[in-house]
Design a protein around this nucleic acid. Sequence first.
DNA 1: CTGAAAGCGCTAACAG
DNA 2: CTGTTAGCGCTTTCAG
Lengths: 338, 338
Amino acid sequence: MARSPKMSDVAAAVGVSPMTVSRAFKRDASVSLATREKILTTARDMGYVFDSTASNLRSQKTGFVAVTIPSINNANFADTVGALSAQLSHAGLQVLLGYTNYNWADEETLIEQLLRRRPEAIIVTGGSHSERATTMLKNAGIPVVQIWDEPANPVDRVVGFSNADAMKVMVRHLLDQGRRKLVFLGGDDLSDVRGAERRAGFISALQDAGLDATRLINTGTPPVSMHQGALAMAQALATYPDMDAIACVSDLSAFGALSECQRQGICVPDHIAIGGFGAYDISAQSVPAISTVQVHSKKIGELAAQAILAALDTEKPAAPKMQRVQPDLIIRGSTQSA
Amino acid sequence: MARSPKMSDVAAAVGVSPMTVSRAFKRDASVSLATREKILTTARDMGYVFDSTASNLRSQKTGFVAVTIPSINNANFADTVGALSAQLSHAGLQVLLGYTNYNWADEETLIEQLLRRRPEAIIVTGGSHSERATTMLKNAGIPVVQIWDEPANPVDRVVGFSNADAMKVMVRHLLDQGRRKLVFLGGDDLSDVRGAERRAGFISALQDAGLDATRLINTGTPPVSMHQGALAMAQALATYPDMDAIACVSDLSAFGALSECQRQGICVPDHIAIGGFGAYDISAQSVPAISTVQVHSKKIGELAAQAILAALDTEKPAAPKMQRVQPDLIIRGSTQSA
DNA sequence: CTGAAAGCGCTAACAG
DNA sequence: CTGTTAGCGCTTTCAG
């Protein structure tokens, strides 16, 4: 197969200048209807494929928005990215996605790799990064949005919430149900910043209530799976036989905990109440359904996209730098008798 | 903030030619150790960020591998993409991901968008596409890998399996357990090619056994959620009160079906056996655990990456065009009494 | 509405 | 090991 045709090849075939072909490929550019049609038909017949790499260099616009998430295999982040992609694609922007593996070093490398591609904006999950990563973000000269967190020192824009406060709401609900001997499952790993914040919220809420806040079960490195949740629940039951409630770092571990209870013949919620986090599908479908914290993953994606579009559109007034997407408590059977 | 520095700015600051700076940024290029170190330090101090867009144009290499999946929110495809990304990143290649929304028209647009970015290879999920999409893939002049399917007319390379055969194995297992009144859940939508194939496998296996193969429950457009699975199960129970087994298009719908049985007080597997598909985490953790078809999502990603790397490396001998990743039946409590 | 000239920032190719 | 020259394929800019 021969070298793939370029714009000048199409131009020669049609009998116009390359510039006219270039215009024919833009929505708004002024080209006569007949000429445009002829160009597009000819281009298609020749198998011409527009070369973005050249366009990007000359126009200094790539149409990329870089996005980092801890892991691709997480329904919450997937929802955020899905909403983000959908919104941005309307504006002709494409998501360039990368995974940090819940790891600062990987994140730093990733951010550098992504910035080399000259994205027009960058969205990072989380509010704490290595020093160099923070510097790179600050100096990138493009809009930066931190999501899924509420950083003390934001780099630029933020669309997030306080993971600690969200967990406090769940703990207070468990206390309202009369539970007093609470255990927390997960969030011990330093690399899982949001998990650690949820754990801190658990501790803080119990201390406020004057209750024992030291019952914490470790699950190791994130992501915390259903299976790890089940193992941790078995450990919790062995360590704290008098426990009457457990708050889990996510719905996945909560479901693992629930299934472990079922295997051991422990009744949920009568004997032990289980609280989840994240409003994954599983929490609505399990029997009993699991009470959880709805974090509005899609909404975060939508707002982040809008923040980007507003920042990129110099015509529009600046949007607020910080947008809080307040999580909601969803009460279900796992914490409340029928 | 001033215009971001370019290579020639770094070169001027260090007192070398831009070419030497360029070489300093390549792993293997020959530059004296002292010079390279000085260049890298100076570049960092200046906040220089290498510009891939220029490099891509000049060297005619982008380092991108385009990948299409139906939906980002699917643990199976996420596993495949995760394995793919990990393998390719070792070779300095970055995944450029796009979603087809289980839709041929969207896929066609997406493939065109991706090809404009000049990826060095493209991996598409599924083996059937619009005519124009197929043409674009064939003419792209880069390695193409179709995954998760076994197309009758492959475009180029394939890493997949027969969804119909995989479902047949599940149906035969149900028959071996003495079940005779089987229902299939899902796979009716034309856009879900793999679901439709599984359904075809169900029908074929039952016909081979001389049994009624007409008990099919529709679930509408993919992806089929847990909730849709539960609704469909309720419909199945109402329509076919004498059913003794149900084969589901995925573990998610199987879990929805299981939870619906639990809500209705129907015992699984004693009264009804439930078969899933995909070996999602949920199938191992539910009570009872769900028998499923393990499709080796990660392995598919790894082999696809290797196929790409082999195709890109002209030194290496050509890998086989078609690689079958045979699914395995996993038998658990949902189809077999303890 | 269309065209000509120049150049985006980097690197292939060649020279030393 | 280092430098020079030219140009990747498109689009900005300026003319007409």
